[in-house]
Design a protein around this nucleic acid. Sequence first.
DNA 1: CATATTTGTTTTGTATGCGAAGAATGGTTC
DNA 2: GAACCATTCTTCGCATACAAAACAAATATG
Lengths: 145, 145
Amino acid sequence: MDEVTHVAHVARIEKELRYVSGLVKQKGREMLNNYKITPPQFIALQWLSEEGDMTIGELSSKMYLAFSTTTDLIDRMEKSELVQRVKDEKDRRVVRIHLLEEGKRIIDEVIKKRQVYLQDVLVNFSSKEIVTLKENLIKLHQEMR
Amino acid sequence: MDEVTHVAHVARIEKELRYVSGLVKQKGREMLNNYKITPPQFIALQWLSEEGDMTIGELSSKMYLAFSTTTDLIDRMEKSELVQRVKDEKDRRVVRIHLLEEGKRIIDEVIKKRQVYLQDVLVNFSSKEIVTLKENLIKLHQEMR
DNA sequence: CATATTTGTTTTGTATGCGAAGAATGGTTC
DNA sequence: GAACCATTCTTCGCATACAAAACAAATATG
């Protein structure tokens, strides 16, 4: 592939990534309509669900947020009884965030809803295309990190 | 492909899409560090740059935002002289948003920066993989719309 | 002309996000 | 063990983001 063609491909990928990310954001927001959680709250719940209890620092790092932002986020999520702060016994500085029943219920429902949506989106993809797409995304994710 | 495998693939794609979108958001935010624009401002500038002058309504629709949100956004962008409101001569209700020099300069720079970043990310992709990724994303974008 | 519709703005309220300063705890050095 | 430093998290102040509801202006429609 000559240089010019390569650059053109990359430019197009950049553009499509912007569009797809925007759509993921938008569709994701719409899917939260009937639940009492916001997009960042969804992401926090998803992390807690996948990785178990985490400290404020760990969650901040996963979500690429400042500590202060996470503190506020967890304040609100605690108020709506989605999660609970638990002080670490060994190191009293550390606060561990624990997923509560209601949070678990909601995140499971929303994740399922997203997968149903995606199954619909992918209805015109062949089995082979699905596998390729999956592998592409995994590699892209790895390289972007 | 049997049903179970298919569902597993879709679930993985959903997950990777979340990760990639998150990274696009985060890396995008970092790349704006040296510029005096915010992420939504970047998206607005990108639309105006690609599609030319647009009304508040059109931009709201493209960005999936309420009118009131866009009004505020454009207020701030006008204050920092990135864009300018122009009243439509024919229909005095309509406000057309016009990209100014400074806005054009910044958006071009940032888009270029993103492409350079992506070229770096894709350095371990073969020519064939690049093409496949591009086609995958285009199709995914189409089907998500 | 009277009324309805379209297009944006204003108002109000909540959420997001960050940096700087502060508080509490834990570790280290002498 | 006192003084000092590092860490983990919270508080505060500020700007932005986002939306619903009320409002205003211009236009379309009967």
